[in-house]
Amino acid sequence: MSKYRYLCFLFVSMLVPTLAFGAGETVHWMTPHYTFNRTTVIAGARYFAAHCMACHSVSSLRYEYLTADLGMSKSEVMKDIMLPSGAAFKGTIDSPMPSDMAAKWLGKPPPDLSHMDRYLGSKFIYTYLLSFYWDPARPSGWNNYVFPMVAMPNILAPWGGTVGPKGQVIYPGKLSPAEYHKNVADVVAFLRYASDPSYFKRMALGPYVIGILLLFTILAYLLKTAYWLDLKKKGRHVDSRVKRS
């Protein structure tokens, strides 16, 4: 298989989660359990910066948005999220890994994750992150139930543990499954924010905008009834004030 077709195959298999069904395996889509609020998203952002940002960008986002949208302080962002690679606070959240290098190491460049949540959905990302298994036949040693022939290694194995193709535990992780699943759910929450950055603004503003429009609607309704009273009266179907020439 030419490298090119291989890449295409990878991409397509990612686009078509149903391919996994075709392969005769049943995927149990797992729903991440998290409350979507700023705390969860900040936890996810920290986790993402520590574990994912070495390879993946979320380049539609800027560091400064983490302060404006999530309420982190500038120093927290600089300390916990920004990479020491000379990134600017107003700049986009880019991975320091040059993509040609990444292509060499991993077989394909890690995709930008800005819109992944809206594109693939939270369930897919969550299940994908929890579906790695050890497969010595693969160059990286890793394979994935929902994304066969995955190029990404299971970088979370030290925390979540390593399982074999049949789901048997090879090494247990440093974290309990509950803690680990919570961390992964936080990352999913962060990616959801990344793909829908206006979420918190909309939630904050929505009630006021709807409120004033409702007020307008009620007033307009009363105005309408005040005028239409004319029609209720017998024999008079138009407002006496409307001049008839």
Partner: peptide
């Protein structure tokens, strides 16, 4: 009154 109020909110 209602015309004024509706216009103001508008």
């Amino acid at each position: 009154f209602l015309t004024a109020a509706t216009s103001a909110v508008g």
